[in-house]
């Protein structure tokens, strides 16, 4: 158990107590939602964790750092940016995946770019976004998000 784990659980505990005092009925509803979403996300969590294991067992570090490492250059950054934009995995699960890649020699830039495009850009949900918000807003948002994801990643790589 590290400090972060304790902090997160304590935060959830404190919020839970406050919620219970304020409105027990609503809190019960929230807990029900929590249980449902826990079981809903669990299969994907397990799958990603297996993939992380396979990654560390079968993909040599030299390979990972060649594709997304410091020396992969701009092409490496572009690759992860596109990957993040196309993939549709819950961002919650992207963090352990990103951490394992970082451990195996990926650069901070590519990991930051990956997280940002993964969360901000949704190729799968783009048609829905166009229908609800209009073509102009949806395309501008997704397009500019791609650009700022790369800028954020480059700055993070430079200062961390």
């Amino acid at each position: 158990m590290n400090v972060t784990t304790v902090f997160i659980n304590a935060l959830a505990g404190v919020c839970l107590v406050f919620a219970l005092i304020k409105d027990p009925a609503k809190t019960k509803q929230a807990l029900k939602m929590a249980v449902i979403s826990f079981f809903r996300i669990f299969p994907t969590v397990l799958a990603i964790i297996i993939i992380i294991g396979l990654l560390s067992g079968f993909v040599p570090e030299s390979q990972i750092s060649k594709i997304v490492g410091e020396n992969a250059g701009f092409r490496g950054v572009l690759t992860v940016a596109l990957l993040g934009a196309v993939l549709h995995i819950p961002s919650l699960i992207s963090f352990p995946l990103a951490a394992s890649l970082l451990e195996k020699g990926a650069s901070i830039t590519s990991v930051a770019v990956f997280i940002t495009t993964l969360t901000m850009i949704g190729m799968v949900t783009l048609p829905l976004e166009i229908r609800i918000l209009g073509k102009k807003l949806a395309l501008l948002r997704n397009g500019l998000s791609f650009v700022i994801a790369i800028i954020i990643g480059l700055i993070m790589g430079a200062i961390l």
Partner: peptide, 21 residues
């Protein structure tokens, strides 16, 4: 990774549920 995840996932889900409600 499983241990790290399972120790925080219930807490995260509770927070998400509370926010949603």
């Amino acid at each position: 990774f499983f241990m790290e995840m399972i120790l925080i996932l219930p807490a995260v889900m509770i927070l998400m549920g509370l926010f949603a409600v």
